[in-house]
C-alpha cells in the first residue's frame, strides 16, 4: 500500500537527518520520531507487541537514557561549533567506501530474503513445523490458558530465564552508571 511506502520513506529521511545533525540533542529527538514511525510500521505488519516495545523502549526509555547520557557529556558533536548540518561534502573517499560496503551488504541481505516464503503465506514452514503441536497440546501439557504465556514460560523456560537475566544485568548496570554520587 502507498502508506507503507510513505512511512518507510519517512523512516529513511529521519534516520539520515539524525545521522547528519551536529546537535546531539536534536539527534536524540529525531530518533524518538524514528521510533514512533517504526511503531506504526510494525502495527501495519500486524506485529502489535513489537510495535508496543518499539514505542515504549525506542521512543520512551531510550530517549530518556540518551538525554541522561548527554547531560554527562557535551551537547555538540565535534569541536563545539553551532551548525545545523555538517558542512563537509556529502561523499568524501572514506564515506564513499563505507557507502559501497553498506550497499553490497544490503544487496546480499535482500538476495538472502528472496527464498523466504511470502508475507502471510499459510504454507510457510513456520506454520507447519511445531506451531500446530503447540496449538493443540499446550493447554493439556502446561495447564496455562494463554498460549503465548505457555510458550514463553513452559516450553522456553530457560530461554526466558536467560532473557530476564540479561535485562536484569542491563538494568543494574544502568542504575550503577546513572546513580547520584553521595557526598563523601
Amino acid at each position: 500500500m502507498i502508506i507503507d511506502f510513505i512511512l518507510l520513506f519517512f523512516l529513511v529521511v529521519s534516520a539520515i537527518a539524525a545521522i547528519r545533525m551536529k546537535d546531539l540533542l536534536s539527534t536524540v529527538i529525531l530518533l524518538s520520531a524514528y521510533s514512533l514511525i517504526m511503531a506504526v510500521v510494525w502495527t501495519r505488519l500486524n506485529a502489535v507487541d513489537v510495535a508496543f516495545t518499539e514505542a515504549s523502549v525506542g521512543a520512551g526509555i531510550t530517549t530518556v537514557l540518551l538525554i541522561a547520557a548527554l547531560s554527562r557529556t557535551r551537547r555538540w558533536e565535534g569541536n563545539g561549533q553551532r551548525e545545523g548540518f555538517k558542512s563537509s561534502k556529502l561523499f568524501d573517499s572514506h564515506s564513499l567506501l563505507s557507502f559501497i560496503a553498506v550497499l553490497v551488504t544490503g544487496a546480499v541481505l535482500v538476495y538472502g530474503t528472496l527464498d523466504m516464503p511470502d508475507y502471510g503465506d499459510p504454507d510457510a514452514p513456520s506454520h507447519h513445523h511445531v506451531a500446530p503441536r503447540y496449538i493443540k497440546g499446550s493447554l493439556e501439557e502446561s495447564g496455562v490458558i494463554n498460549m503465548v504465556t505457555a510458550l514463553l514460560a513452559n516450553y522456553r523456560g530457560y530461554d526466558t530465564l536467560g532473557e530476564t537475566t540479561v535485562i536484569f544485568t542491563a538494568g543494574t548496570s544502568v542504575i550503577l552508571l546513572l546513580r547520584k554520587k553521595r557526598a563523601q
Partner: peptide
C-alpha cells in the same frame, strides 16, 4: 499515555 515521557525528560534537561 507514554507519549510525553521523552518530552518531560527533555524539558527537565
Amino acid at each position: 499515555i507514554i507519549n510525553f515521557i521523552a518530552t518531560i525528560a527533555f524539558l527537565k534537561y
